[in-house]
Design a protein around this nucleic acid. Structure first.
Lengths: 179, 179
DNA sequence: GATTTGGTTTAAAAAAAAATGAACCAATCT
DNA sequence: AGATTGGTTCATTTTTTTTTAAACCAAATC
């Protein structure tokens, strides 16, 4: 099989398939960019994009060759995406390889992301702020301790609000009567 | 004046000031990390953090020396932060230098951020998806065109929902009755 | 039990992002 | 006018991140 990425197809559907390949490339780019904005390496986004654009599960090897990426990159990418529950491995009869399908529910994707990456960061931030506040009140003396206390308080408020809002973001839903 | 970063202070407040400096360093680190998670270079977050931790406006030069960063870095950082409206320049009587103060309202900060960075990205994404959908329906033939159409549709829905939710995120408020 | 297949781990190379520092500019001061 | 101050720009260097590729492992096959 040649390495060039177009699939074999009838003469009749040839042009259309090429167009579809175009679309697929653009979807891959789209998810690369999406991932980028939440600090995933390009390869991770591209892997997800390829799976998203594919109508059937893909095996490790296929992903490698389609994306022209090394086995190492794919392995790392798939592991991370599984951790985020953005892709799921499935096994297929009489085939030793594991295939992968994308999580396509945007709702579940965002819920997992918030839970796995945003929430931990928020929690550690809350801890830091609490810690700073108590350290600050411990030595109540410096000229600017007061203004700092005010600012830390607003930070604390903000964290509280964000935490309350998080579930709604996860669902990407505006609550009843919220319209 | 020595380059070491502790300020001159009375013997009585010496220990406390050191502790306050500690707190300040940690705040700087906190914002460095915050910035990082929205893809700002470390220096940008640190500049904001320094201003946030300071009770009075700081001049360009002071920022340089406090953070041990080059003039170039500070200049770029301040420009970007001003674009995001995360810091504001102020002028002071009989002083040629411009001083800077942080925007401390977390609400305004998040509003600006969403408007300046999230919304544009969302809009360009919407455009891409629309474009892909029409290109896909143009050649209605490929075996997997259907499943792709379904997926693109869910992507579209997601964008629509996110757009509706954005204002609530900007305000970091759970909508009325949303509790 | 040797070999092939499917995949992981990791040191090293490549690429990308960030910081530096020197040249530069525009006000102000002498 | 010349020098100084406050700051910007941008080519170069440094640091960090990402990818590669080679060594490795475990399960299945010969």
């Amino acid at each position: 099989m040649p390495k060039t990425s177009h699939k074999p197809n009838h003469a009749a559907t040839e042009g259309a398939a090429a167009a579809t390949d175009d679309v697929r490339a653009e979807i891959i780019g789209f998810f690369e960019e999406m991932g980028r904005s939440v600090r995933l390496p390009p390869s991770f986004g591209r892997i997800y994009g390829l799976l998203f654009a594919s109508s059937k599960p893909l095996a490790f090897e296929e992903i490698c060759t389609e994306l022209h990426l090394s086995k190492g990159a794919i392995s790392q990418g798939l592991t991370a995406l599984q951790d985020l529950q953005a892709v799921r491995p499935i096994s297929i009869e009489n085939d030793r390889r594991t295939y992968f399908v994308p999580e396509t529910s945007m709702r579940r994707l965002s819920r997992n992301f918030l839970k796995e990456v945003v929430l931990p960061k928020l929690e550690s931030g809350e801890q830091t702020v609490k810690n700073l506040q108590s350290r600050l009140s411990a030595n109540e003396d410096s000229e600017n301790a007061d203004s700092l206390a005010v600012r830390l308080h607003s930070l604390h408020e903000w964290q509280r609000k964000l935490r309350r809002l998080l579930p709604w973001i996860a669902k990407l839903t505006v609550p009843p009567r919220g319209d």
